[in-house]
């Protein structure tokens, strides 16, 4: 898997100008500030993982990039008429809502002035569902999908808008290992097609170590760079507030939490 992600990144020419730039941004909710002094740029070349513990401000940073949240201080520059799509966390959604997969995907085309789908739209939905491997689930109720299928449906809803930038909040949270691999490969393919991708994760070994670029966050940007540059004991301790060891295994970085639970051996 890591070689695939690296290959996909290599196929993207690093010539794009920033789509969104944050300069010295503070952000938060009401009177509390969650993020301090954030400076970050995102372009179509980006395939970036935002890494940090719960409450570190990962989702807040994603919201700033989305434009759904205004900064308390600082400047955000955004390319004009930038098509951005967002994939939320699975657990934030009411899966009992009465909608089929196709209906859910078509929500992204909200500007249409009649309720039913055009022939062209039906073709687009079928094509994007096929690409994501759920082409036969269009008429199924969203509650009847597995976690991986729900994630793919949200990706389909995001992709049908043809975004230049795709933002994902914990895209592999709650899915099994094979689905996690499949989602990562899919994102790598999308990136190879020229789509900027930014995702949040707290999964260091399963996700972060496989991405070409990481931003470690804990109320501020602790470090930014390749996994080799930022997955270090010092950066991880500052980010997660716990001591961790970093090992090399078959050319891969592996993070070990020595304070984690151990199996009792008599």
């Amino acid at each position: 898997m890591p070689s695939t992600l690296s290959d996909s990144t290599a196929r993207v020419a690093h010539v794009s100008s920033p789509l969104i730039s944050l300069r010295s941004v503070d952000a938060g909710y009401r009177n509390s500030t969650v993020l301090h002094d954030v400076t970050l740029s995102v372009s179509r070349d980006s395939f970036t993982g935002i890494v940090g513990p719960s409450g570190a401000g990962k989702t807040t940073l994603l919201r700033l990039l989305l434009g759904s949240m205004k900064p308390q201080r600082g400047v955000i520059d955004r390319a004009a008429r930038l098509p951005v799509s967002y994939v939320p966390q699975l657990e934030t959604v009411d899966w009992n809502f009465p909608a089929t997969v196709s209906e859910c995907v078509l929500m992204s085309r909200a500007a249409r002035r009649v309720p039913w789908a055009s022939r062209a739209e039906r073709g687009e939905v079928a094509a994007v569902l096929d690409r994501l491997g759920i082409g036969d689930l269009g008429e199924r109720h969203i509650r009847e999908l597995s976690g991986g299928q729900q994630q793919r449906m949200f990706l389909a809803r995001a992709l049908i808008r043809k975004p230049q930038l795709l933002l994902l909040d914990e895209p592999t949270s709650g899915v099994d290992i094979s689905t996690r691999h499949a989602v990562l490969h899919l994102l790598a393919d999308l990136h190879a097609d020229g789509m900027g991708i930014v995702l949040t994760t707290h999964d260091l070994n399963g996700i972060a170590a496989h991405l070409p670029h990481l931003v470690c966050v804990n109320k501020h940007i602790v470090a930014e760079g390749t996994p080799e540059e930022v997955i270090t004991p010092d950066v991880l301790e500052e980010t997660f507030g716990a001591q961790m060891e970093v090992l090399q295994h078959l050319g891969m970085l592996v993070v070990v939490d020595p304070g984690g639970p151990r199996r009792m051996v008599s």
């Binding site: 989305l66 967002y86 959604v93 809502f97 909608a99 309720p115």
Partner: peptide, 20 residues
């Protein structure tokens, strides 16, 4: 009739609807 999808999207997932 004319705002069917927008109303449905806002009802289902207002945050994503907003950024969409």
């Amino acid at each position: 009739f004319t705002r069917y999808r927008a109303l449905m999207f806002t009802t289902f997932d207002p945050e994503v609807a907003n950024v969409s």
